[in-house]
Design a protein around this nucleic acid. Structure first.
Lengths: 223, 223
DNA sequence: ACAAAAGTGTTTCTAATACACCCATGG
DNA sequence: CCATGGGTGTATTAGAAACACTTTTGT
């Protein structure tokens, strides 16, 4: 068969929350084009690898993230003919939501890797600014109707921690009382561990694990 | 640069409504593999073509659909290593919603092309059964919160026609009175042409064009 | 005792649902 | 005049929002 050859890559929008702010993982490019410019982590899909597997592998290689703790889903594909000056590249972008991770050690591929607050990210290499914007919008939208926010939390968490996720991602404050009532009333969203945890001063909070629910109905709303 | 070469294709989930039922456009494969089996229309992305442009071109080539009338958006990408036995192929699937179209003339590429009611589609070639399912779910979900349903209608339409779209896509009936109140109360969703149209017996219906609104808030709900 | 955070009760308002009812046309 | 579909009014109910208030801890 005759067909035009393409390179296929996966790029990752890895989001986490550090100190109450939404951060994205970026790597500084070590070679041309865009040498020295921040970019999303990513790399070539291997000949015998599914797209999802490639995303998981790149995630592990560049960040050391052990998969089960994080949420990984396909975002969209980007294939403008001139998006990479070297050759024709189609990038299948993926969105990763992870609990607070340590500062990444500059992995094998990237010269430098670091967390950046999403509202302080400057122009990125290639079309990665656009990909990041799409990933942020996806994450914000999915918090409304999916239990995805728990992917930002450690395995066990309190309602206040979960609320902090929503506030960081949406960039607005939520009423703690109504938020508590809402999330605890969705059947199967949170599983009570039976334990409580006291966070400095104040009444101890119930500790939850993510429940079996796959959707929040009716949704939480952003406004 | 050294990279594993892939073929990149676009596949199309083209939906329309005919006689009150949701239909998908399928082509019968003229060659191996899957010779004689129904498949989604699609083809290779050309060397200097954006993914979206490739989807538009394939749509025109295989169905004769003039673009502006229809809605086209990227759906997702599929790249399992064994999805095509001939070579490594990544398919970027697109979703097209079109007003009722004539029966397609078997185009240049496909041996045969025809509309099929979505609830009567048998096993498709490759992983197209899965792609179709994903496209249907996307279409159903987006009707809730976007003005997308108008893409299934001719340029001018009545509230009853719009309601028929929802009923066909969601597979359930809706209360005509509440539906009418709901869609006419969303600001900018419908533009009144000032004209009326009488459809057989009964009071003539107001004729609308799609309005500038980009979202339905609060959403319509499926249940 | 007091501050602070967790969690509950209550009121108010908005919007979905159900359905009675009126309107405008063809036969 | 009656059947048929277009469109409005209204009562009921569910849930969002606002916020007073109680509970349980650390200092």
């Amino acid at each position: 068969m005759d067909f035009p050859p393409f390179a296929v890559t996966v790029d990752l929008v890895v989001l986490t929350i550090r100190s109450g702010r939404l951060h994205v993982l970026l790597v500084r490019r070590g070679e041309e084009p865009w040498r020295g410019v921040w970019a999303l982590p990513g790399g070539f899909v291997r000949p015998d690898e599914d797209l999802h597997d490639a995303a998981e592998r790149e995630l592990a290689e560049e960040t050391g993230v052990h998969q089960p703790a994080a949420h990984l889903e396909q975002l969209a594909s980007y294939g403008a003919p001139d998006r990479d000056p070297r050759q024709r590249v189609v990038s299948v972008a993926h969105l990763v939501l992870a609990p607070d991770l340590p500062e990444p050690d500059a992995g094998t591929d990237a010269a430098e890797a670091a967390w950046h607050p999403v509202d302080e990210v400057a122009e990125l290499a290639f079309d990665h600014t656009r990909i990041l914007a799409d990933g942020l919008e996806r994450a914000r939208a999915k918090l409304e109707y999916s239990p995805l926010a728990t992917a930002f939390c450690p395995p066990e968490f309190t309602v206040a921690e979960l609320r902090a996720v929503y506030e960081a991602v949406w960039g607005r404050t939520l009423d703690p009382r109504n938020f508590h009532r809402k999330v605890t009333s969705v059947p199967g969203l949170l599983t009570d561990t039976g334990r409580r945890r006291t966070e400095g001063r104040g009444r101890p909070a119930t500790v939850y694990r993510p429940g079996p629910a796959t959707a929040i109905v009716p949704p939480l709303v952003r406004d």
